[in-house]
Design a protein around this nucleic acid. Structure first.
Lengths: 112, 112
DNA sequence: ACAAATGCTGTATGACACACAGTATGTCAA
DNA sequence: TTGACATACTGTGTGTCATACAGCATTTGT
């Protein structure tokens, strides 16, 4: 992957990553677990990228977190909050609206 | 629209706006014309937002531009370049992949 | 015993959406 | 005829977020 590609992907990830995290955390997970989960469902995200998002969404009140210190190494479990669900809904509706615009424009490009 | 909503929309716009502009400029347009065009097809974008995008994509070589000084006030017409079309394709494919992830996760949320 | 995987934290950096300020012409109604 | 509003741009902030980079500690596999 070229540097340019990387930059483009980073830009395209904005907004999307939040939606993905907010959807995934319907089931409680800790960071490292999520990384593997995301790979499983066919996407890919860096440790560098995921941890700051979790912290930020937690700080926003869109996620709640608790430390599990009873098994193994300490793990920080996150799950979506009610506020997070409202935000998720909003984000999804914006995304849907955008998809509508894209398909409208795409039709014109293909028929032009 | 609250300040919070505004911030969220701005974030969701990232990546999307480039796609929209690159699709719209299959037909040459100048900035102000595009603003009205975008409203027509059901989206909304600020002058503040569109002009810098056009400049940036132009600078990247994804758009080409020429001044029309023959009619009325000077207008800067933009259209997509071949490189722009390649980028557009890439952006669309990333977007599509993301949409796939979202619908996969959404299914689990709704069935859970 | 040593590498690799696991599981996190904190701080820096760069790109982009958007804000704000500015410039100038054209149109239309009071 | 003047003043508001639409048209049509430019230039330079600012804040947020994805990602980079550095660090720390435990566990597992060989």
């Amino acid at each position: 992957m070229s540097i340019q590609d990387n930059k483009i992907e980073a830009e395209m990830n904005r907004g999307f990553l939040q939606i993905m995290v907010l959807l995934a955390l319907e089931t409680p997970m800790y960071g490292y677990m999520m990384l593997r989960f995301i790979e499983e469902i066919g996407y890919s995200i860096e440790e560098n990228t995921l941890y700051p998002i979790l912290r930020r969404l937690d700080k926003n009140g869109w996620l709640s977190s608790r430390w599990d210190v009873e098994h193994d190494r300490p793990k920080k479990y996150y799950k979506i909050t009610e506020e997070g669900k409202m935000i998720r809904k909003k984000l999804l509706s914006i995304r849907q609206k955008q998809d509508g615009i894209i398909s409208k424009l795409l039709k014109e490009v293909n028929n032009g």
